[in-house]
Amino acid sequence: MQAFVTGLPKVELHLHIEGSLEPELMFELAKRNQVAIPFSSPDEVRAAYQFTNLQSFLDIYYQGANVLLTERDFFDLTWAYIERCAADNVRHCEIFFDPQTHTDRGVDFATVINGISAALTKAEHELAITSQIIMCFLRHLDETAAFATLEMALPFKDKIIGVGLDSSEQGNPPEKFARVFAHAKALGFLTVAHAGEEGPAQNIVDAIDMLQVSRVDHGVSCVQDPALVASLAASRMPLTVCPLSNTKLKVFEHMADHNIIELLRQGVCVTINSDDPAYFGGYMTANFMAVAQALTVSNTELAQLSLNAIEASFISRERKLELSQEVLSYLQQA
């Protein structure tokens, strides 16, 4: 199973680039930029990664982001993630970034997007790993701040395919950002949103209806509403599920309790992703393996998770066909 999962061509659709900041790189950047951090070693950072819920993770996540200051920092961060993609046979990725996390600290929007974009361009040229960039609004901030961030993004529209919504779900429902999402869509951006992680199934319904999203990030609480599950299956609305994240943040107590394979067998377009892998203990292969070891799943079903991600991706029809054929050929040879 390990060999099959490692070699399986993969597509990642739910990755926060700031959440791929490994403790070693955090310390390297802190030293480079002379930024004080409240830890004395990478091991001490890892020891702090014991979360009880989403907010306890976010508190330390934003602390870690303070070391990211220059275009080179964002390039190095993204390139380190790309090297993980290459090791895990991730053939395409669609990454989130949180500009407000940086612009609110005085870092220019251009610094962030140009550093990320340069690394992704190098990845395509040197490793044949394709990518897209999605800009997320922080939902614990207000609508006015989201509109301001959208305006900042307009000069870089050629680098950003869509907008998303992340951070604290509880107390920040989708309707809070309905107007900014409508404006983003009018400007030509695709839309996605976190919903149904810690929040109820109704947040998934509202993200689809009010924000007109192309896919739902997380979405595992859909099982609270059987009619919603049936609707998701019928419409092929993708869910970008993050198994290790879900157990680390206690959405599920144990991986054996996870509903991703149950949803897969009901025809829902579920996908596997790593979310914030430096904090949650694993990149794509680790997430696939965690599911494969805890739940009874066949090679065909594991391959279907990759095929679902290809279907749900924001890439050309030709690239989708190319990647799908890679997965099917790999499955046939396994």
Rank of each mutant, 00 (worst) to 15 (best):
E301A: 15
M135R: 11
H140I: 15
T144V: 13
T52G: 07
D59T: 13
L244R: 03
V35I: 13
V67E: 09
V5Y: 01
I161V: 12
V163G: 04
D98M: 14
L321T: 08
T247F: 09
I133M: 05
P277T: 01
R72A: 15
V241M: 14
R32N: 02
E94V: 00
F189T: 06
I116Y: 01
L138Y: 07
E22K: 08
D59R: 08
T70C: 15
P23Q: 06
A128H: 11
Q325A: 15
L305C: 12
C93W: 00
F74A: 04
H125I: 11
L187H: 08
A148V: 09
T52I: 08
F314K: 02
I113G: 14
I134R: 06
E262G: 07
F74V: 04
M135H: 10
H125P: 04
F252Y: 12
A227G: 06
R236I: 05
Q333D: 15
L228F: 05
D43N: 05
Q55L: 13
I95Y: 00
L29G: 07
R105Y: 15
S168E: 14
G267T: 03
V45Y: 01
T103Q: 12
N33A: 05
M289Q: 14
I133Q: 05
A30I: 07
D73T: 10
S329E: 12
K320G: 03
E169W: 12
I37G: 06
L120Q: 02
A193W: 10
T78W: 02
A278L: 04
F39S: 05
